[in-house]
Amino acid sequence: MTRTVSISLVTLGDPLAMTGGYLYHRRMAELAPAYDARLTFASFPSVAFPLPALAARRVLRTVRDQRPDVMLIDSICAAFLAPVRMPPGLPVAAILHQPPGGIDHGRPRALAQAVLDRWTYRRAARLLVASEPLGAELARQGFGDRLVVVPPGRDVPEPPPGPAADLRAGTGAALLCVANWLPRKGVLDLLDAVAALPDGAARLHLAGDEDADPAYAARVRRRLGERDLAGRVIRHGRLPKEEVARLYRDADVFVLPSLREPYGTVYGEAMAAGLSVVGWRAGNLPHLARDGREGLIVEPGDVPALTAALARLCADAGLRDRLAAAARLRAEEFPTWEDSAAVFFGTLRELTPERPAGPT
């Protein structure tokens, strides 16, 4: 019988937070029993940088109390472990959803954090990364000998039963954006693009955490209150994953003009649900969808081009259908969560003395 491998995942703040990295970790925790594994969490307090580092020894005591076979460090908190000694004899790995230095910080913090992140990663036997481009970036920084790409799965839960909702509400098409309100997600650019569409062209549906960045959220709310967006946008806020699946099912087009997505889980989910995708030629999107094949990809920051792309799809149902069918077909090449879990837990099991792998 295969021995259960215990993994202690060190992260920052509430593991139930609604962002891509946390959702990834929870999905792996749910799947762990099928791979003879158990995944538990140990969290740094979510306070201003670099104050979480003061809790490093307490967090490591929590890890020791969990008696894991492997300690897995989330990239969001790697910097806070740089100054401390790792528990002796405990294999260490890291799961990276962002490059060293992070992606949502100002330049001074990013530079300082990058040094600390890399210090921690040098002490890890394996670096699990969420995408090929992120892996290539880490390889250029000298970590190529320990990288394993483990992307998120494309599959989402089944939506609740019931008839499809009328998300168009009398317009030409229902646009969907699933994103927390962060500057790099491009929500303001999207609102400007939607405001420039012809009257009656589309209804935009926004789903995601509206308070992820209070200063940016205030700007988004002010923009939503302007007259040129009256009646054009529906806000859903944070939703359970089943309700997000319902929006994927009932929308016509997925749009997210994000400047930097190490993977972009929502693009893959939308494509698997049969939606064409629209966004900037940035981050991982060009590796998931091709312009004119599975979606319309425009140059970063070109809001008139974003408006034109949305206008084309709103006015041409045939084009939407062709791109959507291609997107669904392309998404079949992406891994499922079970595919990714097999690599995830197989890689971590290799760090323990016993190495059998595979789901039960």
Rank of each mutant, 00 (worst) to 15 (best):
G162R: 05
V194H: 01
R227S: 14
A193G: 13
L188R: 07
R184Q: 12
P163A: 13
K185H: 06
A174H: 02
L206W: 00
R227P: 15
A196H: 09
V187W: 00
R223D: 08
D189T: 12
A202Y: 00
L175Q: 01
L191A: 13
G200H: 05
A207M: 02
R219V: 09
D199I: 14
D199A: 15
A165I: 10
L182R: 13
K185G: 10
A215H: 13
P183S: 05
A196P: 08
L188I: 10
A179N: 06
E226F: 12
A212Q: 09
A193T: 06
D213T: 10
L197Q: 07
A164E: 02
A193P: 12
A164R: 06
P163Y: 10
G153W: 02
D199C: 10
A218Y: 11
Y216E: 03
V178E: 00
P157Y: 01
A230M: 09
G186T: 04
G153V: 03
L204K: 00
Y216S: 04
L206C: 02
A195R: 11
E158V: 15
A173T: 06
A207L: 01
R221M: 09
D211W: 12
R203F: 02
G208D: 05
R221D: 09
L167E: 01
D199T: 15
C177E: 02
G200S: 11
R223V: 10
A173L: 07
R184I: 08
T171N: 11
W181G: 02
D192T: 14
R223Y: 09
P161S: 10
R223L: 09
L190D: 05
V220N: 01
P160L: 13
D211V: 10
G153N: 04
L188S: 08
H205N: 03
R154Y: 07
D209W: 09
A218E: 14
G225R: 10
D199W: 03
V156I: 15
D189L: 13
L175E: 01
A217R: 08
P183R: 01
D155K: 06
T171K: 08
L182S: 08
A173I: 08
L176A: 01
D213K: 04
D166R: 08
R184K: 14
A173C: 13
P160H: 11
D211Y: 12
P183C: 05
D199Y: 06
